[in-house]
Design a protein around this nucleic acid. Structure first.
Lengths: 153, 153
DNA sequence: CCCAGATAGTTGACGTATCACCAAAGATAA
DNA sequence: TTATCTTTGGTGATACGTCAACTATCTGGG
């Protein structure tokens, strides 16, 4: 605790490289997606969740859990997306407190137009650069780190 | 372009796993750092840059380049850090437009107190979970993806 | 039926990120 | 010198994320 175990030179390079890669990668993905479709990465994630449902709608808390977002973040974000006509709120007959969030026609058109190019960019920038073994290792790393995150509360 | 090459099932799992890991990992690191020292991860990065200099100060654009931040982001951020007493502005005699940003005594105390625990958390959550080969692969992945980012403008 | 506590979702305040624009100072050339 | 071009840095508007507080509704025990 008070006696730190510092990172080795090699670990420091790996850590810095990882942080820099992530910052630059998401900045590029965000910029391209925005230019291509006017969507942010967050918009994209919300719309993907909705298109994955049979009826293209979901309860707010359901979405929050699927996205791993705080409910207030989602609430603010949905208000902005609703203003832009990407989603709409529908009353929930079972529970008058609740609301359904539904994809609008414009929301569906937008995500259907944006997704192919976005996937191509991810492929170009990431998966085309990696070997199959590296992809395996990336998944293993993600799994192991998340297991530790789960362990430590 | 119009004909997407979708990700394989395995690639999708790796991509989702990676995004989820990063979101959860940085959220945890941020929360712990904040609780321990009152610093944000951004504050931390700025302070590390300053402590790395001999005279514990730097020009604004120098910092912006080192951090890979936009100058306006840095300007706003420094204004807030200055208000909290972590850094101070000093006049630049060589160039009256310019400013030095210098670590304050409080800034130095804060980062020196915060860094060991932060490094321990990174080690606990990440490097203690990985084999040496996995760390190598992480560095290779970061390098390869950043090379592609460099290539594509 | 009534009320306490839980649940669904929103709101407001504040810190932060980005964008576009601005201003002051320096550099360069006529 | 003046004109203009570049560099250094800041500002204000707007969007976003988080926290705490809030409203409205539901649910279970008396």
């Amino acid at each position: 605790m008070t006696d730190p175990r510092w990172l080795t030179e090699h670990e420091q390079r790996a850590w810095r490289g990882y942080l820099d890669m992530h910052a630059r990668l998401t900045a590029r993905l965000h910029r391209d997606l925005q230019a291509d479709s006017g969507l942010s990465l967050s918009d994209f994630d919300v719309l993907v969740q909705l298109t994955d449902r049979d009826d293209e709608r979901a309860r707010v808390l359901e979405l929050a859990q699927a996205l791993q977002w705080e409910k207030s973040r989602l609430s603010h974000h949905l208000a902005r997306m609703e203003r832009r006509g990407l989603v709409e709120r529908q009353e929930c007959p079972d529970d008058a407190r609740g609301a359904f969030i539904a994809l609008t026609a414009q929301g569906r058109r937008t995500i259907e137009q944006a997704a192919p190019q976005h996937v191509n960019t991810v492929r170009d920038l990431v998966f085309d650069q990696l070997t199959a073994e590296q992809v395996d290792t990336l998944l293993a790393i993600s799994t192991q780190v998340q297991a530790r995150l789960d362990d430590t509360q």
